[in-house]
């Protein structure tokens, strides 16, 4: 690898000259990176919103624990302590029989006590689990408590939600791999075109004694440049479109629920895209130039292995 100043000057000069000489290839390269990374960026944004929405649903999952109505007072205290000490409980809310009756009457506009002449509603605990996947074991733990009358939670809904969440995660991962591969491959193709269009120069470089690293560097700079510039342009476009969509929704008096901190998310997305652009650009340039340079070595090796008649 070359580190001398004149070497670095040469790399940048070659890169700039190539850009000036082949503006169309440069433009195509830039647009390709912008489009690929923009699609990737939009997809990530969309998935983050969907993910946040599903996770917010997950947080809404509650377990209702109804106690028997005829327990001695000290048992209610013991049960309260047991529930508060349970490990998988994020939030615990107690609704007394009186509160339950009051709520019921308010909701249905009837007085149950007047009809039945007693309060049939049990004392209730509403529990929010820390880990929704372990909700069944939480429910069975509650059912095992002496003095528990009934435990209820949306078993079906929770199972469906968990399935959807797992599905979304798989789709997200697969689409990410697909989009990243597509981005990598499109940048790789452009660099390969660039390497191929400069094969004459590469041959001259090889003949006058340039090392392979010296030949690779201008391509690596080119890949890194287009990766970063393309990512920045894609980030800008996503920002402008996002702003426009927000303004439009505000005009239409539609307000989205605050699921994630949009500014933080956009900042992370921008950073991630620039890093991804840089990495994809560098790696694809290395792959493309290596492929070209190794063709020559392969040819020599194949010749060397020939059986001469």
């Amino acid at each position: 690898m070359v580190t001398s100043f004149s070497g670095i000057r040469f790399f940048f000069k070659e890169f700039a000259e190539n850009l000036r000489r082949n503006p169309f290839v440069g433009l195509t390269h830039g647009l390709q990176v912008i489009i690929s990374l923009m699609v990737l960026g939009f997809f990530i944004m969309l998935m983050v919103f969907i993910g946040a929405f599903l996770f917010s649903l997950r947080n809404m999952v509650e377990v209702y624990a109804f106690l028997q109505t005829d327990l001695p007072a000290e048992r209610y205290v013991e049960i309260d302590k047991m529930l508060r000490d349970m490990p998988n409980v994020k939030e615990l809310q107690y609704i007394s029989r009186e509160d339950a009756l009051k709520k019921f009457s308010e909701s249905y506009h009837i007085s149950v006590e007047d009809i039945l002449e007693y309060n049939p509603l049990p004392p209730t605990y509403i529990l929010r689990p820390i880990d929704v996947t372990k909700i069944e074991s939480l429910a069975s733990q509650l059912e095992d408590i002496d003095g528990m009358w009934q435990v209820r939670y949306g078993r079906k809904e929770v199972t469906s939600l968990m399935k959807v969440l797992v599905g979304v995660q798989i789709v997200f991962a697969l689409t990410m791999i697909l989009l990243l591969s597509a981005t990598f491959s499109s940048i790789n193709n452009i660099i390969r075109m660039s390497v191929y269009s400069r094969r004459r120069e590469i041959r001259i470089m090889q003949l006058v004694g340039a090392t392979n690293w010296f030949i690779r560097w201008p391509f690596i700079i080119e890949g890194a440049f287009f990766g970063v510039i393309g990512a920045l342009a894609a980030v800008l476009i996503i920002y402008l479109i996002g702003e426009a969509v927000y303004s439009l929704l505000a005009t239409l008096q539609i307000f989205l629920p605050t699921l994630v901190d949009v500014k933080v998310m956009f900042g992370l997305l921008a950073l991630g895209m620039v890093v991804a652009g840089l990495l994809i650009g560098v790696v694809s340039s290395l792959t493309a130039s290596n492929r070209f340079l190794s063709t020559e070595m392969r040819r020599i090796e194949e010749m060397r292995n020939l059986e001469v008649v």
Partner: peptide, 24 residues
């Protein structure tokens, strides 16, 4: 000849030195 058409005479000759990292 194997010359680079986009480079001048000076550029073609200096190229052989530049790819070796020779100083200015």
């Amino acid at each position: 000849f194997l010359l680079l058409p986009q480079k001048t005479v000076y550029g073609n000759v200096s190229y052989a030195l530049e790819v070796r990292g020779a100083p200015m």
